[in-house]
């Protein structure tokens, strides 16, 4: 995180960040393709079949990394939001809004794969498990952010309002998480838990890590190309944009 931070400060002006992002996108795309390829191979052919859950468990190699990423991206957005509010840099707000759709997508994938996993394991698509519920609320927070930014025309206002909303959400997330957990333990209806616990072999853990890193690289690649579009859109009247090769063509 730290080395990236220094880079961002140097490149915090959209004009100098735009070409840099352009160079970074293919790199991260390549990393993402390779890692996800290796990860998928490992999850299908290397990781052993679980003696209790059979083959169906393999979906956790998508589910768990997606869930990690969904939370991690929200924190990264909060980081950009705070940076933008404190230093009033334009790029921070663009970064936050370019990450939001990817974060929402991972949240959705986590929920969806969770349902696919839940059906054979628990016999139901959805249980009001503490983690699932928290994840659902996280999806609401993402959607709220996207909706708020969509409703505001002025880009400066939408950046700052969005940043405030994310920060309020970040303060709230631990409270939401613990309240949901407590609520869940009180209602001991379905006594299932998503935790794998100690039964996880190290090969499974490695596969998950590789998948998570692959997702992470994917998120960076997508967010960067999205931020490039946002930069072009917002800076379309400036001279440096009109001098770009791809714009002149």
């Amino acid at each position: 995180m730290n080395s990236r931070l220094i880079n961002w400060f140097k490149f915090s002006s959209p004009a100098s960040f735009y070409p840099l992002a352009g160079k970074m996108v293919p790199v991260f795309t390549l990393i993402a393709v390779m890692l996800i390829g290796v990860g998928l191979y490992m999850s299908f052919f290397v990781a052993p079949t679980d003696y209790k859950q059979g083959e169906g468990y393999r979906i956790i190699f998508v589910h768990v990394p997606a869930a990690w990423l969904s939370m991690f991206i929200y924190l990264v957005m909060a980081f950009w939001a705070a940076l933008g509010l404190v230093f009033n840099t334009r790029l921070s707000g663009m970064m936050a809004s370019s990450l939001a759709p990817t974060g929402a997508m991972f949240t959705f994938i986590a929920l969806w794969t969770g349902a696919f996993w839940g059906k054979p394991m628990w016999g139901t698509w959805w249980v009001w498990d503490a983690r699932l519920t928290s994840e659902l609320i996280l999806l609401f927070l993402y959607l709220g952010f996207i909706a708020l930014q969509g409703a505001i025309d002025d880009s400066r206002r939408s950046d700052r309002a969005g940043a405030l909303l994310i920060l309020v959400g970040v303060v709230n997330i631990p409270i939401i998480h613990y309240s949901v957990k407590w609520w869940n333990t009180l209602h001991q209806g379905a006594s299932v838990s998503v935790t794998q616990g100690s039964s996880m072999s190290s090969i499974m853990l490695w596969t998950m890590l590789i998948m998570a890193l692959g997702f992470w690289a994917y998120a960076i690649a997508v967010a960067l190309s999205r931020v490039r579009s946002i930069i072009l859109e917002r800076e379309r009247d400036t001279t440096w944009v009109s001098e770009l090769a791809e714009v002149r063509r």
């Binding site: 609320i137 609401f140 927070l141 959607l143 709220g144 909706a147 708020l148 909303l165 309020v168 959400g169 709230n172 409270i175 939401i176 309240s179 949901v180 407590w182 609520w183």
Partner: peptide, 12 residues
């Protein structure tokens, strides 16, 4: 849309 998710702990 913005406020309801944040109010969940209060509800719970």
């Amino acid at each position: 849309l913005l406020v309801l998710p944040l109010c969940i702990p209060v509800l719970i």
